[in-house]
């Protein structure tokens, strides 16, 4: 456990020092900061515009940071040969992988926390919303954090056997398709005219790939007024789902990494 902890804390330190991540983070914070000014363009629905734009920036920037942060983690260690120093100590490969992953998740937590904090402060300062809406935004930010933690697991899994460039596109692709799953399934389910084979395929893909759209609960936040029953159970369900999928990806990653020659 000590080995995992020290690897993860080192990883957080490395992540914070990486300029490319800091630049992306700064751009994210900057974009979130200008959103309140943008909303005045839509006099009739400025709250809607503000919330949807802020959440859009938060999600996109978080996803970008998660992919850029994780795709280089394992390959960089191998390329710089620092992995030999680590593995020559009493550290198992699985501990190295888990430590790296947890470090990435912690770094992501810090970065998303910063962006979410700026978002909430600006939202409160400019729009003076009721506390429930602030909490709604916070809940969505937490779900985005779980979403990118899952994405980081996807990227870590791929990084055990593909190059960073390929991993970048693979992870982005998996996130893209995973974000499509619920809306696509929903759209086909609503459209009785769609072919049964396409609907069947949509269901099959939904069962196989990690479903990132489960974490996208912003619609009732943007358009309030709908009472949702048992929302906490849903949040726990999505967290559990994320944990299960992360377990799958990390175990698969361990199994592959264990056989890999470094």
């Amino acid at each position: 456990m000590g080995a995992i902890l020290s690897i993860s804390t080192t990883t957080v330190g490395e992540a914070i020092r990486r300029r490319v991540l800091l630049v992306i983070l700064m751009i994210g914070v900057l974009l979130i900061s200008i959103v309140p000014a943008l909303s005045v363009l839509s006099a009739r629905s400025d709250l809607t515009t503000t919330i949807s734009s802020m959440l859009f920036v938060l999600r996109i920037v978080s996803v970008l940071i998660a992919i850029v942060l994780t795709v280089y983690m394992i390959p960089n260690e191998i390329e710089r040969r620092t992995i030999y120093t680590i593995l020559s100590k009493p550290v198992q490969r699985w501990q190295f992988l888990v430590g790296k992953y947890l470090g990435a998740v912690l770094a992501l937590g810090l970065m998303i926390g910063l962006m979410a904090g700026v978002m909430l402060i600006l939202f409160y300062f400019f729009k003076h919303p009721p506390m429930e809406r602030m909490l709604d935004l916070l809940r969505q930010a937490i779900l985005y954090f779980i979403e990118v933690s899952l994405l980081a697991a996807v990227a870590i899994f791929f990084s055990t056997f593909v190059t960073p460039l390929v991993n970048f596109f693979l992870s982005a692709g998996v996130w893209g398709v995973g974000s499509l799953l619920n809306p696509l399934y929903d759209s086909f389910a609503n459209n009785q005219g769609s072919a049964p084979i396409i609907r069947g395929m949509a269901k099959f893909v939904t069962s196989i790939l990690p479903n990132f759209s489960n974490y996208d609960v912003k619609n009732p936040i943007i358009n309030p007024g709908v009472t949702i029953q048992n929302e906490t159970t849903y949040y726990l369900g999505t967290a559990g789902y994320g944990l299960l999928y992360i377990t799958i990806l990390i175990i698969a990653g361990i199994l592959i990494f264990d056989r890999r020659e470094v």
């Binding site: 619920n182 809306p183 759209s187 086909f188 609503n190 939904t206």
Partner: peptide, 22 residues
């Protein structure tokens, strides 16, 4: 978890709804 609970709950409560495909 996904098929038995999350998908149905999401469709009911969080989907913007409507048919975008057509």
């Amino acid at each position: 978890v996904s098929q038995g609970y999350l998908l149905g709950f999401w469709r009911k409560n969080y989907s913007p709804g409507g048919i975008v495909a057509n």
